[in-house]
Design a protein around this nucleic acid. Structure first.
Length: 558
DNA sequence: ACATGATGATACC
DNA sequence: TGGTATCCCTCATG
């Protein structure tokens, strides 16, 4: 795959701010567009060491004759509270506290800026152990499935240009995304408040937000495989909703909190969800370690809940094997991903337990053969098992990648590209920022999981928030991103431009930005994006001119 | 340019 | 084992 370099300019983009959805305050009314001043000078990259301030406090005015008390404030590191250094942003570059382990790989002795995993192309990859086709299952795999995997990887087409966006579509941060299984332009989104959005991103105006489906976090959505206008949604309110996208009507399939709120020790929340279409079952798991089954025909519970992860711990994900739907992959806060056979489902009967160092945010079988497994763990590592028929004792590879959990963010989940026939490309948002042209941006990373190589890092100067939720289109070269409350659709450069030239009438431009945008005096940037970006979005600072090369190409000790 | 708060995993007692 | 203090690149709002 050809390495991808960072762009030096940004294309015309269609962005629309939504005005129908709930506004949480009135702060964004007709604000005048402010031109942003030049970027602050960085202090030669040197952290100023001992800044000492003296404050004279004269609070004892009542007592005469006393001298004022002098407080000495020594600047301390806000991370470790020790003097002598400071951590935090210097301009758009974050300086780590040297007293703490590396924020990226969690190893002490260095900081993120000089972490070996930050500058190598195949970061932290543990090579796969030597395998021999000795087991019967491996033999079956070689005979029946191997031919389905092409030996030469086709060139990946990375969607790297924002094609259109809806700013603040949702009133809270986005927690899940799902493309429609047959209608190419339809994207579903769920948010922290339980709202369900339906957006036709080719007709930017056509969108609906339902706020009556759930009362809190919408964690997962799945279409009914036999009726693609019906969608199941699982929420932290403890219910599964079943919604008809044509009528907007919905019914509740399951409610784990029929008696209402009795405190956090009893309130059940639903996270992972998947569908076993062979058996006609909706599988869903809660925050106490249990798996629940719902019959899709009767819409009623099927059997008792089964304990699949440590009792009392959250199950974060469920995935049915695409080739063998009875084989189930689950993951949870007990630091394990587990493989199960639906036909022999009882507590403790997992076929396999995949150990992680910390919480597992997600675990997915590869999308075509279902033979590989990709997990995302909060220890800042992606793990890949190359064959579920092989040695599962340890992952084939571990890839160091920054996707730390922060309680205010939706958990990051690495997802396979469903279109990649070699089953190696995955996408995941990045937590730590990098200084891109003077702006701290959090890219979305495309990783070749067969080598650990960073194939592309996708970012846009207008998206300054972290993008933990990403979904690749099942058929087209399209990436959907949920970043804070906004939705973005990315397409490869050529396609974005084609769309613009072909149908000018469809471009939607935000009026505010259009009428007030003006080129700043002294701004010699050749990156002017005289387009429809709304004024509140930050324009990239253009103090520096050179965009750094992608990390894929060189080791440059940044 | 600050201050605020929402609120999850974890280490530790 | 349970209660609680602690936490490092959030983000939108004053």
């Amino acid at each position: 795959m050809a390495p991808v370099t960072r762009r030096t300019s940004f294309p015309k983009v269609h962005i629309e701010r939504d005005s129908d959805s709930e506004q949480s305050s009135s702060s964004d009314e007709e604000e005048p567009l402010e031109e942003e001043g030049p970027l602050e000078e960085e202090e030669n990259g040197v952290v100023e060491n001992e800044k000492i301030e003296k404050l004279e406090v004269g609070f004892d005015a009542n007592r005469k004759g006393k001298t004022p008390i002098t407080l000495t404030l020594r600047k301390v590191c806000k991370v470790c509270k020790k003097p002598g250094h400071e951590a935090g942003f210097k301009g758009a570059t974050y300086i780590d506290c040297p007293m703490k382990p590396c924020f990226l790989c969690k190893t002490p002795g260095h900081t993120t800026l000089n972490c070996p995993h930050r500058v190598t192309t195949e970061h932290g990859v543990v090579p796969a152990p030597r395998r021999k086709t000795s087991k019967p299952l491996e033999y079956v795999f070689e005979r029946q499935l191997r031919h389905a995997i092409p030996s030469i990887k086709p060139k990946c087409v990375i969607p790297d240009q924002v094609n259109c966006a809806v700013i603040r579509y949702h009133s809270r941060r986005i927690t899940s995304l799902e493309f429609h299984p047959t209608k190419n332009n339809i994207l579903l989104s769920g948010d922290k408040k339980g709202q369900l959005g339906v957006w036709d991103f080719e007709k930017v105006h056509e969108k609906v937000v339902y706020d009556d489906k759930h009362s809190c976090i919408l964690n997962n959505m799945k279409f009914n495989p036999t009726n693609d206008c019906m969608v199941y949604s699982a929420s932290s309110d403890g219910t599964i909703s079943y919604t008809d996208l044509e009528t907007g009507m919905s019914s509740s399939l399951m409610n784990l909190n029929p008696d209402g709120w009795h405190g956090p020790n009893t309130w059940k929340m639903l996270y992972g969800m998947d569908i076993n279409c062979e058996k006609g079952l909706v599988l869903v798991a809660d925050n106490f370690g249990f798996l629940h089954l719902v019959d899709m025909r009767s819409n009623h519970r099927n059997g008792d809940a089964v304990l699949i992860h440590k009792k009392g711990s959250k199950v974060t994900g469920i995935h049915c094997n695409p080739m063998q739907p009875d084989i189930l992959l689950t993951c949870g806060n007990d630091h394990y991903a587990r493989i199960w056979d639906m036909r022999r489902l009882e507590a403790g009967s997992s076929l396999c337990s995949l150990e992680h160092k910390r919480v597992v945010n997600s675990a997915y079988f590869s999308p075509i053969t279902g033979n590989k497994i990709l997990t995302t763990s909060q220890d800042n590592r992606l793990r890949i098992w190359d064959s579920i028929f092989g040695n599962m004792a340890s992952p084939s590879r571990e890839i160091v990648h920054s996707h730390d959990f922060n309680r205010h963010l939706t958990p990051f989940k690495a997802e396979w590209d469903p279109k990649d026939p070699s089953e190696s490309l995955a996408v995941i948002g990045r937590y730590i920022s990098e200084n891109f042209n003077g702006t701290a941006l959090h890219p979305i990373d495309f990783i070749d999981t067969s080598t650990g190589q960073l194939v592309a890092e996708v970012m846009d100067p207008n998206i300054t928030t972290i993008s933990p939720v990403n979904k690749l289109h099942p058929r087209d070269d399209i990436l959907a991103t949920g970043s804070s409350r906004s939705l973005f659709i990315w397409k490869p450069k050529e396609k974005s431009e084609m769309v613009e030239e072909k149908d000018e009438s469809r471009i939607v431009v935000c009026g505010k930005a259009e009428k007030k945008r003006g080129k700043k005096k002294g701004d010699n940037s050749d990156e002017s994006d005289d387009d429809g970006f709304i004024s509140k979005l930050k324009k990239p600072k253009s103090k520096q001119t050179e965009w750094k090369l992608s990390r894929c190409s060189t080791k440059d000790n940044r």
